[in-house]
Amino acid sequence: MALPEAAAARLGVAPGRRFTLDNRLSGPSRPAVEVTGVYRRWPARAAPRPPPDCRWPWWWR
């Protein structure tokens, strides 16, 4: 399982580490997982702006 960089730093885990997940709702299921990678979240971008052209409606400016 790959983790976001912020979560991996907060949990103190690195690729190759194995740990067990806890089921906080109910049941005895406790799957073991291995951290296969750490990724950095892609930064959010603003919505693309239309080109400055008189053909576009006035509310898009």
Rank of each mutant, 00 (worst) to 15 (best):
M1W: 01
M1H: 06
M1K: 02
M1D: 01
A2N: 06
A2L: 06
A2C: 02
A2H: 06
L3T: 07
L3S: 03
P4C: 11
P4L: 09
P4R: 12
P4Q: 10
P4E: 10
P4H: 11
E5N: 12
E5K: 12
E5T: 04
A7V: 14
A7M: 15
A7K: 12
A9Y: 00
R10F: 09
R10I: 05
R10E: 15
R10G: 13
G12W: 01
G12K: 03
G12Q: 04
V13I: 12
V13P: 01
A14L: 12
A14T: 10
A14Q: 13
A14V: 13
A14M: 10
P15F: 11
P15T: 12
P15G: 12
G16A: 12
G16L: 10
F19D: 09
F19T: 11
F19R: 11
L21S: 09
D22L: 15
D22V: 15
D22H: 11
N23M: 08
N23E: 05
N23T: 06
N23I: 05
N23P: 05
R24N: 05
R24A: 14
R24Y: 05
L25K: 12
L25R: 15
S26F: 12
S26Q: 15
S26M: 13
G27V: 05
P28Q: 09
P28S: 13
S29G: 05
S29R: 11
S29T: 13
R30E: 15
R30Q: 15
R30L: 07
P31C: 07
P31M: 04
A32F: 00
A32S: 13
V33W: 03
V33M: 09
V33H: 07
E34R: 15
E34W: 00
V35K: 06
V35N: 06
V35F: 03
T36N: 10
G37R: 14
G37T: 04
G37N: 10
G37V: 04
R40T: 14
R41F: 00
R41C: 04
W42Y: 03
W42S: 10
W42G: 00
P43D: 06
P43V: 09
A44H: 02
R45I: 02
R45H: 08
R45E: 14
A46D: 08
A46W: 01
A47P: 02
A47E: 09
A47V: 07
A47T: 05
P48I: 03
P48D: 05
P50R: 09
P51C: 03
P51G: 13
P51T: 09
P51W: 01
P52A: 14
D53W: 03
R55G: 03
R55I: 05
R55P: 00
W56P: 01
W56Y: 06
W56R: 10
P57M: 04
P57I: 00
P57Y: 00
W58N: 04
W58T: 04
W59S: 04
W59Q: 07
W59P: 01
W59N: 06
W59E: 09
W60V: 10
W60D: 04
R61G: 07
R61T: 06
